[in-house]
């Protein structure tokens, strides 16, 4: 795997444990990516990954943050929160598994598709968690070949 190229853009977004403001970061991330001229398909995928991650932080954690890093060859989204952490990561990656409370399900959350959606829309997806501490997710979306691409894209893309 080629080393990541220099970051063209980086921004940190705090995310509160509050559904009312949830969705704001993904809207802002999409706006930034579009203004940077990132390919529409990459913007679309990053928007979905960001929204699902943002909702997870808002719904299930004590708050956290999202870091957006745009590179020449990829967009990275780093999610981190202050707990409660996930005991069984394989389980939460299973479509349909959810710990959402009833009130969240009534709002259309808790389909058990959030993390599978994040993974499906990422080219690389890594998740680490410690119960009582928090969860960290790194989602990478490779940018497709464009004019400045030397043909040396990441494998699998």
């Amino acid at each position: 795997m080629a080393p990541a190229t220099k970051a063209l853009y980086k921004q940190v977004f705090p995310v509160k444990s509050d559904l009312e403001s949830a969705g704001k970061v993904s809207t802002e991330v999409r706006r930034i990516l579009r203004s940077l001229g990132v390919e529409p398909e990459v913007v679309r995928r990053a928007g979905i990954v960001c929204f699902e991650g943002e909702m997870n932080i808002a719904l299930y954690t004590k708050g956290g943050r999202i870091i957006l890093i745009v590179r020449d060859d990829r967009v990275e989204l780093l999610f981190s929160d202050r707990g409660p952490g996930i005991a069984d990561i394989d389980l939460v990656k299973q479509p349909g598994y959810s710990t959402a409370p009833d009130w969240a399900r009534e709002l259309g959350f808790g389909a058990g598709m959030g993390i599978p959606n994040m993974e499906a829309n990422s080219d690389r997806f890594a998740m680490y968690s410690r119960v009582g501490v928090g969860t960290v997710i790194r989602a990478t979306i490779f940018r497709r070949c464009h004019e400045t691409c030397g043909g040396n894209r990441a494998p699998g893309t």
């Binding site: 929204f51 699902e52 709002l107 259309g108 598709m113």
Partner: peptide, 27 residues
């Protein structure tokens, strides 16, 4: 009515029929 279901399976240009009507529907 499941937001993640829409995110996973709806296509661009679809008309989305739902009972949900909170802010995140717009997002």
């Amino acid at each position: 009515d499941l937001l993640s279901d829409v995110l996973a399976h709806a296509q661009e240009g679809d008309l989305w029929i739902t009972h949900q009507r909170h802010l995140n529907v717009v997002a």
